[in-house]
Design a protein around this nucleic acid. Structure first.
Length: 220
DNA sequence: GACCAGGCACATC
DNA sequence: GATGTGCATGGT
């Protein structure tokens, strides 16, 4: 009878392999917490390169500031973030977040992140346009909270190794990561960033490529 | 020109 | 609860 390898060993091994292969990712690629949050919203179903252009444009027009975002006309904002796609929708989503921040936390990210974790996560999820992935990215990368972010790459890669089912709910997949890893902000930060790196480089083009750092990870 | 990218809301069944 | 659709640019 073949001995079944413990899931936590595999989750750990995948992390170690990716880290050795790609090295630290220094995520999130942003200078401020506000920039992280804006990036998290703009990158919804969009390549990061297109988001970078939009953020650069916001900086150029000196709009990358809370009060400015609060007061700018949504149509004007949409124009500035055009390169990130879905610009009308995303302009509204940025507005929704910033309005929430001022109404609930007097425009202070410090106050917001001092909120009880469970309450904050639910508050953020109640904002129209912020789903689980966006909210968890904000909590982890802007708020330094130990939350594991699940995205399309995570689903694809981990279902391929039969550690999850691709159709599992977000919550189910997240629970699986949390159960099998030490709860640690730095680990969660790096792990998700490494998954994205792998996903961007190899995942679609050559799923069984020999150069893949996970090529002989045991499948369950 | 087709396909994809670090999602989400909403309609319909 | 599952499934389908609209939102849109820019790179390959």
């Amino acid at each position: 009878m073949k001995k079944r390898i413990r899931a936590d060993k595999i989750f750990r091994e995948i992390y170690v392999r990716l880290y050795k292969f790609y090295g630290p990712r220094f995520w999130w690629p942003a200078k401020t917490r506000l920039e992280v949050i804006i990036g998290a919203i703009l990158t919804q179903n969009t390549s990061w390169k297109n988001v970078e252009k939009a953020i650069k444009n916001l900086k150029k027009h000196k709009v990358l500031a809370k009060e400015k975002l609060l007061n700018i006309d949504p149509v004007e904002l949409a124009e500035l973030i055009k390169s990130s796609g879905y610009y009308n929708i995303k302009s509204g989503r940025l507005k929704n977040f910033i309005t929430f921040l001022f109404e609930k936390y007097e425009g202070s990210l410090d106050k917001m992140f001092k909120e009880d974790f469970g309450i904050l996560r639910n508050n953020l999820l109640a904002i129209k346009g912020l789903g689980e992935e966006t909210v968890d990215s904000i909590l982890l990368y802007a708020g330094q909270k130990a939350v594991f972010v699940i995205d399309a790459y995570t689903r694809r890669i981990f279902s391929r190794h039969r550690l999850i089912h691709e159709c599992d709910s977000y919550q189910d997949i997240q629970n699986k990561f949390v159960r099998n890893l030490k709860s640690d902000v730095t680990l969660f930060n790096e792990y998700h960033a490494l998954i994205v790196e792998l996903g961007k480089n190899l995942c679609r083009k050559e799923p069984n490529c020999n150069a893949c750092p996970l090529k002989d990870i045991p499948r369950r």
